[in-house]
Design a protein around this nucleic acid. Structure first.
Length: 415
RNA sequence: GCCCCCAUCGACUAGCGGUCCAGGUCGCGGCCCUUUCAAGGCCGUAGCACGGGUUCGAAUCCCGUUGGGGGCACCA
């Protein structure tokens, strides 16, 4: 993986990185991280740390230390000088340009696209070294591939037109060519390049939105690849064992946020209860919520089946952690049932979901109310919302005192 | 403008010449379940871009058209 340190890690780059990682892990090879920082003017100070932090969170571990392209500046210059000496490159306004062949074709057998061919007459003489002495990306990149013994270059299709140029450089220095695989781009719902206006695009944003890295990996793996026509849910291990680069599609895929949400929900629900609570705690901590861990753990089990992203937790369970302000209109004139509920729960023992349910159903019966009519005002009174986790479990966790207070406060407004 | 790539339901895809009047998943619609919302179960909706070939036979192979995307920097 060879990101340039210009900002946060983009999800499209993550998809390409994932294919590299899956291929390397499947084949027992190495996955390398190279920071392509030859354009110092665009470099952002924090970017390298952000990129590594994001990769770690995603579980995309790389082999060996990460390298910086700029560290090979001197080596690149030396090669450029040799090429000039050999007549394969020439001085031009203080820069050094590579002399591309102007007849014939440059062809390579791309793993995902098959043979790709460019006429050499269409290849421009590439600037190898800028007039300020820094090598350019299209020179440094193939050189590093050679020096690092890169066997497979798996990158986005936006690099297709760079490939013939890079191949000619590698040939000129007499080194062996790597195998190339150009994977399709990831687009937004409009078919255009995935960007901010489509939704979350950086790893940091997906993390903040409460997606699980394993769900994100599963979803991304399916953008341009499928093991068969049936399987959609695959954990990391399954992805590694089943991944096959030759099955990667050549056509671009659109990023479907709705499907990601569904898949994240699947992963959330599959988590063991304690693990789900643990993930919630971590997410809450990362996002500035200082909520009681014990209460979060109790609340977790009430919402696990109901949310698709961790970020939905505060909206669903917030009533357990702070005061509520029910809309009087939502109480739906339920003064009677609220009073009845108050009475039914005031000295109920034990104060548990099952007994609470029995008591409230009994109260509803006596008022001749259908469950739906009776429980909705109580729900609004107690949780402050028309949508909530299971009412009886919620009341149990909330506790008698708070429940009764909210019931009374609401009864006063409803009347 | 030039170069390159791509083309199956709205989306992600399976399909690699007959087993496809095209299968799975998301979404969407309906029904069931139900204390709300979800989840779950069942049913349904919807597609091989178009035109020529090749072949006994094409979603699958070839050519063209159209459409979409990417690239044309002393950016990466």
């Amino acid at each position: 993986m060879a990101p340039s340190p210009t900002g946060l890690l983009h999800i499209g780059n993550v998809r390409t990185a994932l294919f590299n990682w899956l291929y390397a892990r499947h084949e027992g090879g190495e996955f390398r991280l190279r920071i392509e920082n030859t354009d110092t003017s665009r470099e952002v100070a924090e970017a390298v740390d952000h990129i590594q932090e994001s990769l770690r969170w995603l579980g995309l571990d790389w082999d060996g230390p990460h390298t910086f392209q700029l560290d090979r500046m001197d080596d690149c210059r030396r090669v450029a000088d040799e090429l000039v000496a050999q007549g394969k490159a020439y001085q031009d306004d203080g820069a050094i340009r590579f002399r591309m062949p102007d007849e014939g074709v440059t062809v390579w057998n791309d793993i995902v696209r098959g043979p790709v061919e460019f006429r050499n007459e269409n290849l421009a003489d590439l600037v190898l070294v800028r007039s300020d002495g820094r090598p350019t990306y299209n020179f440094a990149s193939p050189m590093e591939d050679v020096w690092d013994g890169i066997t497979h270059v798996i990158r986005g299709e936006d690099h297709i037109s760079n490939t013939p140029t890079q191949i000619n450089i590698i040939r000129a220095i007499g080194a062996e060519l790597p195998i190339y695989a150009h994977v399709p781009n990831v687009a937004g719902a409009d078919g255009k390049k995935l960007s901010k206006r489509h939704g979350a695009v950086t790893v940091a944003e997906f993390r903040k939105d409460g997606y699980l890295p394993e769900a994100l990996m599963n979803f991304l793996a399916l953008l341009g690849w499928a093991p068969d026509g049936e399987t959609t849910i695959m954990n990391r291990g399954e992805l590694v064992t089943r991944f096959d680069l030759t099955r990667v599609s050549a056509s671009p895929a659109q990023f479907d946020y709705a499907k990601l949400d569904w898949m994240n929900g699947v992963y959330l629900r599959e988590l063991p209860g304690e693990e789900f609570a643990h993930r919630l705690l971590i997410w809450l901590g990362e996002n500035g919520y200082d909520w009681d861990a014990e209460l979060v753990t109790q609340a977790a089990r009430l919402v696990q089946e109901k949310i698709a992203r961790l970020a939905e937790f505060p909206g669903f369970a917030g009533f357990l952690f702070g005061d509520v302000e029910p809309e009087p209109a939502d109480l739906d004139g339920g003064a009677q049932i609220l009073a009845a509920a108050d009475e039914a729960l005031a000295s109920l023992e034990p104060f548990e979901a099952a007994s609470i349910e029995a008591a409230l159903r009994d109260a509803a019966d006596r008022l001749g109310l259908k469950p739906r009519q009776a429980f909705q005002p109580i729900r609004v009174a107690v949780t402050g919302s028309k949508v909530s986790p299971g009412l009886f479990e919620s009341i149990e966790v909330l506790g008698r005192e708070t429940t009764l207070n909210r019931l009374r406060a609401a009864a006063a407004v409803a009347a």
